[in-house]
């Protein structure tokens, strides 16, 4: 057999790929396929998936959509043209995820820039300081934030002892937003830092030399050149946000429903697996679109960097 492997590169390739291909196919693609099949099923008397096959789960998602332009400030500014139960859910999820990604970016960029400009020794120290939350259990960190913000938590105890009004932040959309930003910050800082560390600062000098002011040098030269890190960080923030479960539950108390949380509910509280599967697939499509955008721009980005 060893002889055969030595003589036929194709056999070697098959031997190398088989375990991975098997795992990917059996424990990733087939489960997704089963989910796809279930999303077209109905429920039997006990509520479990069963034939006949139907489109009703998808129809439920787009049911009762009506034209209703509106503008609200719930969970940040939101502008809508259409309304509908699940359309609202998707729209809110995308919107909150986008807003949280944007806030995370705005907070993370100065930090990454600061780190990239530090002298080497301090830079490693700062990197270490980002790595710890990066590797720390997400649940534990979110729990720590929730603990801080509780009605009788440290912040409010401090405020009360100063005779100030306690804040009722927990279990609001704002709390969910804070939780998402807090949870995802390290995932934004690290890729941004990686891009900025490689950044050639003579590019800024060249831009200034050619008459670009600080703002133009930033937008025309620095941003495009660090775009791989920017896009990677945004995807690493956006995707987990839209599917977030822990944050929505711990920070929002389940009151600010996002798709991920809603899907989980279909499998626990309401036991509607077919509908949950349909929701999952729609979410996958949204995420895939985001991923395609990522690959497009990161390919363009790496072209620019090399």
């Amino acid at each position: 057999m060893i002889q055969a492997l030595r003589e036929h590169p194709a056999l070697r390739l098959v031997a190398l790929m088989t375990p991975g291909a098997f795992w990917l196919a059996v424990f990733f693609l087939i489960p997704l396929g089963i989910m796809g099949v279930i999303s077209f099923m109905s429920r039997d008397a006990q509520g479990f998936p069963a034939p006949p096959y139907t489109l009703s789960n998808y129809q439920n998602i787009i049911r009762d959509i009506r034209f209703a332009p509106s503008l609200s400030l719930e969970g940040g500014l939101s502008i809508r043209l259409f309304e509908g139960l699940y359309l609202d859910l998707f729209w809110r999820s995308i919107w909150i995820s986008l807003v949280s990604t944007l806030i995370t970016l705005v907070i993370a960029f100065p930090v990454a820039l600061f780190m990239a400009q530090l002298p080497r020794r301090y830079r490693n120290l700062a990197l270490f300081a980002v790595m710890i939350p990066f590797w720390t259990n997400f649940l534990v960190r979110t729990y720590a934030l929730q603990f801080m913000l509780r009605g009788n938590g440290p912040i409010n105890t401090l405020l009360r002892s100063l005779n100030l009004e306690p804040i009722e932040l927990l279990f609001t959309p704002t709390a969910v937003l804070i939780g998402l930003v807090y949870g995802n910050l390290p995932f934004m800082i690290l890729p941004l830092y990686t891009s900025l560390e490689k950044f050639d600062w003579t590019m800024i000098e060249a831009a200034h030399d050619l008459g670009a002011n600080t703002w133009s040098a930033f937008t025309r030269v620095m941003l495009p050149l660090v775009s791989p890190g920017l896009v990677a960080g945004s995807i690493l923030t956006f995707v987990p946000s839209i599917g977030s479960y822990i944050t929505v539950d711990l920070m929002g108390g389940g009151r600010t429903n996002l798709i991920g949380y809603s899907i989980a509910q279909q499998f626990s509280a309401s036991v509607n697996w077919p509908f949950g599967s349909a929701l999952s697939l729609v979410m996958m499509i949204i995420v895939t679109i985001a991923a395609v955008i990522y690959f497009r721009s990161s390919r363009g980005g790496s072209r620019a960097v090399i």
Binding site: I107, A108, P110, V111, L113, F114, M115, Q117, A126, A129, V130, P133, T136, R141, A144, L145, F147, M148, Y182, L185, P186, I189, D200, W201, T202, I204, E205, H208, N213, T214, A217
Partner: peptide, 28 residues
């Protein structure tokens, strides 16, 4: 190459970074 024109922001950057690290670490 670290250009003169990004210097004015250094102080602001340091403050922003310190606040962010505080935000990350205080709850922990």
């Amino acid at each position: 190459g670290a250009t003169a024109k990004l210097r004015p922001g250094r102080f602001a950057l340091t403050v922003a970074a310190l606040f962010t690290f505080a935000f990350l670490y205080v709850p922990i």
